[in-house]
Design a protein around this nucleic acid. Sequence first.
RNA 1: GCGGACGUGGCGAAAUCGGUAGACGCAGCAGACUUAAAAUCUGCUUUCCUUCGGGAAGUGUGGGUUCAAGUCCCGCCGUCCGCACCA
Length: 833
Amino acid sequence: MASRFNPLKADAHWQKVWDEAGTFRASDASGRPKAYILEMFPYPSGRIHVGHGRNYVMGDVLARYKRMKGFEVLHPMGWDAFGMPAENAAIERKVHPGEWTRANIAAMRGQLKLLGLALDWSREFATCDPAYYGHEQALFVDLFEAGLVYRRESEVNWDPVDMTVLANEQVIDGRGWRSGAPVERRKLSQWFLKITDFAEELLDGLETLDQWPDKVRLMQQNWIGKSRGMRFRFRIADPTAGFDSFEVFTTRPDTIFGSSFAALSPDHPIALALAEGRPEVAAFIAECKKGGTTAAELETAEKLGFDTGLKAVHPLDPEWLLPVYIANFVLMDYGTGAIFGVPGHDQRDFEFAHKYGLPILRVVAGSAADADRPVEGEAEPGEGVLVNSRFLDGMDVEAAKAAVIARAEGEGWGEGTIVWRLRDWGVSRQRYWGTPIPIIHCPTCGAVPVPRDQLPVVLPEDVDFETPGNPLDRHGAWKNVACPRCGGAAARETDTLDTFVDSSWYFIRFASQPADRPFDKAAAERWLPVDQYIGGVEHAILHLLYSRFWTRALRRLGMLGIAEPFQGLFTQGMVTHLTYRDADGNWLLPEEAEAAMDAGLPVTHGRIEKMSKSKKNVIPPEPIVAQYGADALRWFLLSDSPPERDLQWTDAGIEGAWRFVQRLWRLASAEAGGAGEDASLERKLHRTIAAVGANIEALAFNKAVANIYELANAIEKAPPSASRAAAVETMILLVAPMVPHVAEEAWAAAGRERLIADAPWPEADPALLVEEEVTIAVQVNGKLRDTLTAPKGAPRQALEEMALASDKVARILEGRAPRKVIVVPDRLVNLVA
RNA sequence: GCGGACGUGGCGAAAUCGGUAGACGCAGCAGACUUAAAAUCUGCUUUCCUUCGGGAAGUGUGGGUUCAAGUCCCGCCGUCCGCACCA
């Protein structure tokens, strides 16, 4: 047997063996319990780096482990292939987006294959395949017919660089999530999916996701943003411009007697109507729109108001008139676009009242005795008892809320209600490289869905990107069609779907891909939900919320009997690497940095950052695999850092991993020899079997790695014995999910005919998990003074006597008897002097 | 501003229920093997003191609860993440 493991030969060999045997092909018909392991599929942006690899290797270890545990494992791979980078590449390099995308997929598939991933490649697809997006169009038509899709003119987030609309979720600090350009407001006709119809169940469903990180559940909960409160109508004392009342929403109906003004959003219909006849109103509204939307600007933005001169009648006192302002801080798209101001108990209203000299009334106080204490410095939004509030006086906040709502509902001027922060999902994109929206606009029939037998609506290939904007819009031959309903001249919708639609159901298509429909219900339900989903936390809201919505929508349509698509979710950390910059702050490749230093130019070590092309700190997998092999790379990616935390790429780290792979090989290929039992090694082995299994299931790969190191150390120190030879063999099984190539090689070298990938996971013998002897800590006053060895399960009395017999303890106690003795069996004895 | 997470050796980290802090790895030091190097193997490696037996301190910081706190509670400091004029 060779003294060194040669990954160059072994990697390719075993990858071919797995491939030819169809080892990782998932069977829909197997009787074994299923496990669906999925990593978020990649966008084919060019090349992968080792940071992407970490994600796939984690899923791979779990998939291989589950196979060994007897599960039928579905572990597929595909490509989230629509999106703007392809179009940008088309514009810059004059290649067709499809060509660019296909070339990237081919390159990245080759890179992934170098890692020896246990993937079922037979289910691979790209979302830009008409065979995929055609079914997506069919699903869109289904949702359309079910009333879950609608079109409306709306003010949208317009990205002036990418020349497209962005969803609210895609606007970060007022800038486009991709381009980074400040987002503009524009009015456009857009297609929307009714995700708000599902707000309640998306929120409640979070409760069932106990295998999701709390952090992600909390983020979704905040995003959905449920607020309970009351809606009520203010009558306008002197109706103008055709309006005699307006509605407001509040979460604090209890403070209704603390109100000193009402305020309308600058976009409110009444404000807009007033602006028609009064230039000063129009000017104020224009002023409000000027301000930026970045965090910093909003932080410092002044509260601005314009007194319309209108008076609102207090709903509980017809004599009480409130001034009506237009105020810049009132948002049209939350609640009703109008508020009633309670300066004493809301900070924004407080600032507003200060600026415009409005009364600041106290209606909540710590106790009734504080009723006359003025509210000073800042608003008091907290708990207390109601004061200065007529029939509410003396109630606590919750009771007062209920009392006001009951009164309003009884008298018919308001009602208890719930308001959501979540908005409907705008899915129209004015881009070419996406799924065409399967709708035809007919001047007579309106928006007509493309009949199912005419799907897919295929993207035309012959498009030009010379002119800015959407090339579909200019493509007459594609765009101009007959109306499917009346046969008259009509035009295709030229907007394409947000690519997040593509990724909202790909996991269903992986489970089942018939040619004639999106998926087969029974086949999909065999695999779904995904047992373990792995990906970046950056998708905590967008992709994960949309997928949950899509799955629930399909359920409502009766197409799928599953509520939640992802039972387990894991968000892994990034791989980071050193960066270098020159004197001008430009990023340098490591070799450029070296050359510059040799030339005596100043080079600064940048921060250790997430690998990215722009920072020039990416490590591609090819040279690493060529030098150290796939197993060393996999081992490194699993070692040391907890998987949810960032992992720093270092040359020393990959070399350490390579040394371990070689060490495994040496252990496995050494002459076995020896006879007889080694009870202590067997205990170690069985504890390791249990620990590695538990740690892999918990995705604590770094701990599983440490368990293996401990076992390897113990085996190396153990004298030859039959136990030792068996331990080596078992260790090969334990590392097989993590370093599969060297494991197969060692397995074959040991004369095994079956693949180790098909071998069963070893079972820990429960009898060997229990120690016969334990080390007992002996403390005096809580400080460790001695340790002693006792049989497992020794009685308290015996432990106490042994502890008192210790010389060290005797020296410290100086002959005194301890006042108190605490004995924790099998752990410690604490003598309190 | 609101919400959340985290803070342990030179570094990555571990410590499952409040019970021997630092397992395991990296880096480092010393030694073995070698003509030499690589590879490999052995030992040491939290800090300070030491009469070499051991002793003291120690998990961001200050308190508290407890026989016992990295772990629980309260305050503070710092780092990171999410949301943000949400009525």
